[in-house]
């Protein structure tokens, strides 16, 4: 069963008169429960591919199907709805809302999904425990280290039990110890919950955890990889 399926996807950015072809007829299928790395040099199209899978952007041509839903013709709100229930994000920069505590950041997707206070509290405490952040629940991002912030971001990404978590260079701003910690947590959650993870990275520390490595170059997939048990 696939979580994401991209067929002949092209994404062209136009700045003034200049056209940049970020993806050029890419087809890719992400299966349920995969722990996949998208690798390739800068400008190869990793982030663009991740954004298209995450319904943050729309392809110039081609078809993107997420969790069985064709997304190409969805409007802004419909895409937001799909993201809200199906996809979680972990970004390279520590993308927490600075005015909210760790607890409140992890709670935000549940609020947007209309969960009641009791459900939210139970779920957030579970998540903070899973990422070992219970003792920092009421700290704001500026009171947390980079690694701690990224762990909270992972907790937030998992809040609504999404089928798919997309992470763009999740360890790029972390030292080795914190990077390893974050990857260990994500790997553990992948195994325990069966949640699918897709990373855009060129960090060998991330690649070594992947069960599948997809290589991109100049907007094309040069190696589709094969899922392996790790």
């Amino acid at each position: 069963m696939e979580v994401a399926k991209l067929t002949d996807v092209t994404r062209v950015y136009k700045i003034g008169e200049v056209e940049t072809r970020a993806l050029n007829g890419v087809s890719l299928t992400i299966g349920n429960g995969e722990f996949t790395s998208l690798v390739g040099p800068s400008g190869s199209g990793k982030t663009t591919l991740l954004q298209l899978i995450g319904c943050l952007d729309q392809p110039t041509s081609g078809k993107v199907v997420i969790d069985g839903k064709e997304t190409t013709n969805l409007n802004r709100n419909q895409r937001a709805d799909l993201r809200k229930g199906t996809i979680g994000f972990v970004f390279q920069f520590f993308a927490l809302i600075p005015t909210l505590t760790a607890y409140e950041n992890a709670e935000m997707p549940l609020l947007l999904n209309g969960k009641n206070a009791a459900e939210r509290k139970q779920r957030v405490m579970e998540l903070l425990k899973a990422v070992d952040m219970t003792d920092r629940a009421h700290h704001r991002p500026d009171q947390l280290s980079g690694g701690q912030q990224q762990r909270v971001a992972v907790a937030r990404a998992l809040a609504t039990n999404p089928k798919l978590i997309l992470a763009d260079e999740p360890t790029a701003n972390l030292d080795t110890e914190n990077g390893e910690q974050v990857m260990e947590i994500m790997k553990k959650l992948n195994k325990e919950t069966g949640t699918t993870f897709v990373f855009a990275t060129h960090d060998p520390r991330v690649i070594k955890y992947a069960t599948r490595v997809v290589t991109l170059q100049d907007g094309l997939i040069t190696n589709n990889g094969k899922a392996s048990a790790k």
């Binding site: 709100n77 937001a80 993201r83 809200k84 229930g85 994000f89 970004f91 809302i97 997707p109 947007l112």
Partner: peptide, 16 residues
């Protein structure tokens, strides 16, 4: 701007 992007990415709609 980036914060709005994050909120939007995690499913906040325009009217929200």
């Amino acid at each position: 701007t980036r914060e709005i992007g994050i909120l939007s990415a995690i499913g906040m709609k325009g009217r929200q």
